[in-house]
């Protein structure tokens, strides 16, 4: 375990450094882009003097290591800096966006877990179904998230009028009760979550299936069967409980790819989460914001990996005891 923690800390340090360095090495700086670009209606001129002024205001004229050191100090205080493009505290911006990304991502992961596990259980019971299910899901799991999103957008959302095409809530919507609002949010989240789930659920199906199969071969199941316990009871008490840890671990292991998937799907549905803001931050060379999004997603992924490790370790221990 100690080794794991050390590894996580090292990974974090490396990622933090990379994350700090890369945006600063990118061609262009945050103030260049503010000037003008193709497709814009008006160009606001920014003189070199004003640019210098702003550069020193944001501390970007200081030597690299001074910036790094100040950045670390500020981060340790919980200060993520100030977005140059949006002119807001990065932490405030992230707090606005994070709930939406979390909503999509965790709903999709939870749904995938439930769906994948149920399908695996179903497959165990009905062998006939299993072959087709296996083939179908292994194909579905290979599709890119954004593509499934686009297909849903064109084939479903554009055909029916009660599904919104984009956004997270109706703009200036009028709600007569809290339930109205929740319904609105759910409707907007429906397709992004569906797109994610379709691609993520197969992974859970395979994990659950493998886990169930391995438990079925365990001696205590055979013993239970020999004792003449009812199928349902065995399934509930022995198989399900013992097969669960790897599935739950999978939940946390999937966070890494799910973050990426969510970011893409958000861009398809113009969903106001971290994905859309990340894309803009890169476009505008907004260093503090790029770093903020990055830091947040890295933390989330590393912590999830750690959680998965803990669960796996606990599962192994329990299995060891029950043998």
């Amino acid at each position: 375990m100690k080794k794991k923690i050390l590894l996580l800390l090292c990974s974090f340090a490396v990622i933090y450094l990379v994350n700090f360095t890369i945006p600063r090495l990118m061609p262009g700086d945050p103030f260049d882009y503010q000037s003008a670009a193709a497709g814009e209606e008006s160009s606001t001129e920014m003189t070199e003097e004003l640019k210098e002024y702003l550069r020193s205001y944001y501390g970007l004229d200081k030597p690299f290591f001074t910036q790094l050191w100040e950045n670390i100090k500020a981060n340790l205080r919980g200060d993520l800096g100030y977005s140059i493009h949006y002119k807001k505290a990065v932490s405030a911006l992230l707090l606005e966006r994070l709930p939406w990304t979390a909503l999509i991502m965790f709903s999709a992961l939870a749904l995938s877990l439930i769906l994948g596990t149920s399908l695996a259980l179903l497959g165990l019971r009905r062998k006939k179904l299993e072959g087709g299910l296996y083939a179908l899901l292994s194909l579905l799991g290979e599709l890119p998230h954004f593509l499934v999103g686009i297909l849903l957008l064109f084939l479903v959302a554009a055909r029916v009028d009660w599904l919104p095409l984009s956004g997270a809530v109706t703009a200036f919507g009028i709600y007569y009760s809290e339930w109205d609002w929740i319904e609105d949010v759910l409707l907007h989240a429906l397709l992004p979550v569906a797109a994610m789930t379709l691609v993520t659920a197969p992974g859970f199906y395979f994990t659950a299936r493998a886990s169930f199969l391995s438990i079925l071969e365990r001696p205590y199941i055979l013993a239970a069967k020999a004792k003449g316990l009812k199928e349902g009871r065995i399934r509930r008490h022995y198989i399900f409980r013992n097969a669960l840890p790897p599935i739950v671990a999978r939940f946390f292991l999937s966070v890494g790819s799910a973050i990426g998937g969510t970011m893409l799907v958000e861009n398809v549905f113009a969903y106001p989460g971290l994905g859309t803001v990340m894309r803009e931050a890169v476009k505008y060379r907004d260093y503090p914001l790029i770093q903020g999004v990055f830091l947040l997603s890295t933390l989330l992924v590393l912590l999830s990996l750690f959680a998965a490790d803990l669960i796996n370790a606990a599962g192994d221990r329990r299995r060891g005891e029950s043998l």
Binding site: L8, S11, I15, V18, N19, I22, P23, L25, M26, P27, G256, S257, I259, G260, G261, M263, L264, M278, R279, V282, K283, I290, V293, F294, S297, T298, L300, V301, L302, L305
Partner: peptide
Amino acid sequence: SVPQLPIMIVAGAFFG
């Protein structure tokens, strides 16, 4: 363990 897509986005913009 790194979140791939964010890194790819940044690296893509950085390296051209």
